[in-house]
Write a protein that binds this DNA or RNA. Structure first.
Lengths: 267, 267
DNA sequence: CAGAATGACCGATTATGATTGAAATTGATT
DNA sequence: AATCAATTTCAATCATAATCGGTCATTCTG
């Protein structure tokens, strides 16, 4: 068996289990312990895994599932003030008793805080959002069924015939990677899949994007501008973007970090 | 058992209850007290938990964990050793890679700890189980869709056309309020609804009941004895009950709190 | 044939479990 | 309250077993 082949096996095994022992890998590859140790050493040097006594474990990029409130550690800190203001404005649109859909994402996650004191019917595909609302609010939570994708922190089902199709709401809230003339852009195909499933289950589509998103471009278009009812952003929105949204007959809400919010009507 | 596996289990257990004793962890992992003490010491140094006399506690103070519903919490402490032993025997039935269904309940919840060091495909309708496994294990988690009922801590959908129907597993594990000649008994109609939805999605139905459940009677019969493949209980099972199960051609596993388990074949 | 990879061997290191006495906790009695 | 005995928990020690890092002979590869 070639070295590279073993390395593949080792890396694969290490992903599968919390730890793999040297003996495990021996019987898995059929080579001697000495060789496995050498392989582990090599892979350890290449940062492909971590070497521990008795075997190896997967290198876990900073634990992404934190405790309630900080699920997406990396993105979370970015433009946090803008996101909070935007999320606050989004929740302000809702009245107690409303049915809403919240798509998973770092911006939409910020909605949980203003939602803590409300009582709505919330449908979400985000595990952290559901968890937080369950623990810290009295909202009614409905979850979409499916497998939990740890990386994106969303629940996704490959089937079309799930609860999602039975939940209909007044508004759906979602974030995005970018917002341009072509429409709503997303980077992750998995997120596209999740979001497209939810779009259409609500009367109005409300998009939460901080102003930096107007300059972002991604490869994947999620939906055209026409589908969007409302965009909530911060006051850094470029004039060109505002004009574009206005031309598309989209209601634009500019949330100010201070806490107030103003509405620039379009149409 | 490898050091890292133990650490996972310990960290998992410590989240579950305010304190875990050294003896608890011994029977949970099957290693000696000395080793557990050393592990706790190590994890204490790594700030992963706090060491206290007699055992360890979570680093985060009395944070009301995922078990929001009060009944869940009070039930949790009752017959905890039996439940743990039973849950351990249940997990011992599974091999890595298996697909299993875990129905929500306090006994089945105990399966999360031995599962912490495993890698399975787990389908559940219990939010706490999903949450715990998501945070403390590498298992693949699939959730049933629907509304979260806080009291029972389960996710339930009024619709029949959800993911549940698409997930098929080798075994389904469930608890019950009682087990008698009429079959499996449950007290809460909501639980009945949740459980009946899942039964039939697995080859074998494995029932986890501590021996006190054989004297319990409830008004609602969930399913007849014939549907049950295996019953896992503790050594307090009355002879009459054992005879009843044997007559029904049910495989009975008696889990001993010590850690070992023995099988009393039935037919 | 040269160079690298591999496997076997061996002393050194480390983890584990049992034992023991010290320390802390409990609770029973004064 | 205060003391003491019984129990539990702990830390230190040691023997055993597992694991490791090196050396060296052998095999594979180009």
């Amino acid at each position: 068996m070639h070295e590279k082949e073993r390395h593949r096996i080792i890396l694969s095994a290490v992903q599968d289990r919390p730890v793999v022992t040297v003996v495990d890998l021996c019987s898995l590859t059929g080579v001697s312990e000495a060789t496995i140790r050498r392989d582990i050493s090599t892979l350890h040097m290449q940062q492909k895994l971590r070497r521990v006594r008795g075997g190896a474990e997967a290198i876990t990029p900073p634990q992404f599932v934190g405790l309630a409130g900080r699920p997406f550690v990396v993105n979370e800190a970015l433009r946090i003030n803008e996101k909070q203001a935007i999320a606050r404005a989004a929740v302000a649109l809702c009245e107690d008793g409303d049915s809403i859909i919240i798509n998973g994402g770092t911006t939409t996650f910020q909605m949980v805080h203003p939602l803590a004191s409300r009582r709505l019917q919330v449908f979400t595909n985000s595990f952290p959002i559901a968890e937080h609302l369950l623990k810290h609010s009295k909202n009614t939570i409905t979850l979409s069924g499916g497998t939990i994708y740890r990386e994106q922190n969303i629940i996704l089902s490959p089937f079309d015939n799930d609860v999602t199709r039975n939940f209909y709401a007044r508004r759906m809230f979602m974030g995005a990677q970018g917002l341009g003339p072509l429409g709503l852009m997303e980077a992750d195909p998995l997120l596209i899949q999740a979001e497209q499933k939810l779009i259409g289950q609500a009367d109005e589509l409300v998009v939460l994007v901080d102003s930096s998103k107007f300059s972002q471009r991604s490869s994947l278009v999620l939906c055209p501008l026409e589908r969007i009812s409302t965009v909530i952003t911060d006051d850094g929105i470029p004039d060109a973007a505002a004009a574009m949204l206005e031309a598309a007959d989209i209601n634009v809400i500019v949330a100010h970090a201070g806490g107030a919010q103003e509405e620039e009507a379009a149409s």
